[in-house]
Amino acid sequence: MKTVYHKADSRGYADHGWLKSHHTFSFANYYNPERMNFGVLRVLNDDQVASGMGFGKHPHRDMEIVSIPLEGDLEHQDSIGTTAVIKKGEIQVMSAGTGVQHSEYNKNKDEIVKFLQIWIIPNKMNVEPRYDQISIKEGEKRNDFQQILSPNQDDEGVWIHQNAWFNLAKFDKGNAKKYQMHDPNNGVYIFVLKGSAKVGDQHLETRDGFGIWETEGFTLEATDDSEILLMEVPMELPQ
């Protein structure tokens, strides 16, 4: 078993006034050669956007981009004809593929938006760009793992072009559950959205990250009422 621990205050940080962003991995002006990725998990940005502000239209290609709102309403527009608003309790995925342009704005003039922006390196390049958005609130589970992303179109949650699974864990204090790897070549990056937890002897606080791989599974225990995101991804980069 191998592990890596990223304390919340060790992340990169950018304050652009309208945008405040914490970067778990190297991004934009934050560069740390030891924090480039966790397997195919390339970007994990913890963003806060001021009211009425946002990201103007910009391009992406050959990347699976996942957005998970934590607070407020985020408006999305893209070059494949999508106009949508995503909010807490939903998940959005965009396969950039051969190329897509999109913009993201805080739809509200009187409150901030907080959301996670996650980039996954795909296992298929030059795919047709696509967009999907679903409610994950309807399948909400307590003290269990709720799958919100997978490689399978017919499975629970959204799907991406990669052998990856995301789960949300909303645990009451003292509850624990074993996570079983879907693929022995994968690892899991655990990100504590709120509360605290532990895996083995490693204690995790809010916004801490913890990667674990070369194991068949592990037990996640909540040491407080907690909400935790688990991202299982391949550890080898595509050739």
Rank of each mutant, 00 (worst) to 15 (best):
V188R: 06
E71N: 14
G97K: 02
N175F: 15
S21D: 09
V43K: 03
I68S: 00
V49N: 03
K137L: 09
E34K: 15
E64K: 12
T24C: 01
L168I: 09
R11E: 02
E104L: 05
K124E: 13
P59A: 09
W18G: 02
F218I: 13
M36I: 15
H60N: 09
D62N: 15
F27I: 12
E64I: 10
I148V: 15
G200A: 10
D46A: 05
W119H: 03
K88R: 15
S67Q: 06
H58V: 10
D208L: 02
A14D: 10
E34P: 00
K137R: 10
Y5D: 01
N175C: 02
D224G: 07
Q133M: 08
D78V: 06
T83I: 10
A8Q: 08
E90F: 04
V233R: 07
R61C: 05
Q202G: 01
K2D: 13
E221L: 10
G139L: 12
D183A: 07
V43Y: 01
I120R: 02
V4S: 11
I121T: 13
T98S: 15
N37I: 00
H16N: 13
A14L: 07
P184T: 06
K137N: 11
L237T: 04
H60R: 05
L230K: 07
R130M: 03
I160S: 08
I118G: 02
T82I: 12
N37M: 08
F191C: 00
D201K: 12
Q101C: 08
H182Q: 14
W213E: 11
E216T: 13
S196F: 00
P238D: 09
N152V: 14
